[in-house]
Simulated assay, not measured.
Amino acid sequence: MVEPALITWTDDEQAIAQEAFSHAYGRAVSTVISTLRREADSIHTAQALWRLHDYLSTQRHVMEGRFDFRLEGILFTFASLVKENLLELQELDGLDADKLAKIKAMSRF
């Protein structure tokens, strides 16, 4: 059985990836905070309070799953973040052209 080729990362590429990842995480957190502030102003019942709690619990679960910085799967993560407008391809400038092409292609689906 032939194993897939491992993707290698230079130190510079790892630094670029980590910075871009951090920026995308910050944007996602800001979105949740904005939603929380907007929704909190309209809480007038216990039911609305628990609905907001459920939203926060769901977002925490989603973000913990989405924002997992492991180089083995980071190209998929970046493609997903680009697709969700949490990351711009330009923020990944400096990565190998093949990595950028894969991210760009995967972000289209």
Results as ranks from 00 to 15, higher is better:
M1N: 05
V2Q: 13
E3V: 12
A5C: 12
W9G: 03
W9L: 08
W9I: 01
T10E: 12
T10R: 00
D11M: 09
E13A: 03
Q14D: 06
A15S: 12
I16D: 05
A17K: 02
A17N: 05
Q18C: 09
Q18R: 15
Q18L: 15
E19R: 15
E19P: 01
G26Y: 07
A28T: 04
S30E: 13
T31D: 04
I33V: 15
S34E: 00
L36S: 00
L36Q: 00
R37L: 00
E39H: 09
A40S: 15
D41C: 09
I43H: 01
T45H: 03
A48R: 13
A48C: 14
W50Q: 08
W50C: 14
H53F: 15
D54Q: 04
D54V: 10
L56S: 07
L56V: 14
S57C: 12
T58K: 10
T58R: 15
T58P: 00
T58G: 06
R60E: 15
R60F: 09
R60Q: 15
V62D: 08
E64P: 01
D68V: 14
F69W: 13
L71Q: 09
G73N: 10
I74C: 06
T77P: 06
A79R: 00
A79D: 02
S80N: 06
K83L: 09
E84Q: 10
E84W: 05
L86R: 09
L87G: 05
E88K: 03
L89M: 13
L92I: 08
G94F: 12
L95T: 00
L95E: 01
D98Y: 02
K102Y: 14
K102C: 10
I103A: 10
K104Y: 08
S107I: 06
S107G: 07
F109Y: 07
